[in-house]
């Protein structure tokens, strides 16, 4: 198997919630922090172990606040470094195409 072609999938609406919440756990349910801690990190580390890409599917839910996305993906970059996160993650967002650009911005600016 070609490593570059191998992909792990994470569909947020199916595996976490279709109604994402705020930034932090203490602000409300299904927060970006909860998503990162309970699901994203585990999948991310699994992708690292397998040397494959982790494709995040953002479609199918009601939408996302920027705080949720920043805390999830920016938070991941603060923990693992922006370069590694950028190299490991790809995104699918047919319903809101600009989200992908926003998320890469959060990853790049995560350490500010």
């Amino acid at each position: 198997m070609n490593v570059l072609d191998a992909v792990l999938e994470l569909n947020i609406a199916k595996e976490f919630t279709s109604t994402p919440g705020p930034r932090f756990i203490d602000e409300g349910k299904f927060s970006g922090e909860e998503f990162r801690q309970t699901l994203l990190k585990r999948k991310f580390e699994e992708a690292l172990r397998m040397s494959v890409t982790l494709r995040i599917d953002l479609d199918g839910g009601y939408g996302y606040g920027p705080s949720f996305l920043e805390e999830a993906f920016g938070g991941l970059a603060r923990e693992y470094g922006a370069d590694l996160v950028r190299r490991t993650l790809t995104f699918k967002s047919d319903e809101e195409p600009l989200l992908t650009r926003d998320i890469y911005g959060y990853i790049s600016r995560a350490a500010e």
Binding site: P22, E27, G63, G65, F68
Partner: peptide
């Protein structure tokens, strides 16, 4: 979809 995000930001 973007309005959903706006509402969440306002609540936060």
């Amino acid at each position: 979809k973007s309005c959903y995000g706006h509402l969440l930001e306002c609540m936060g």
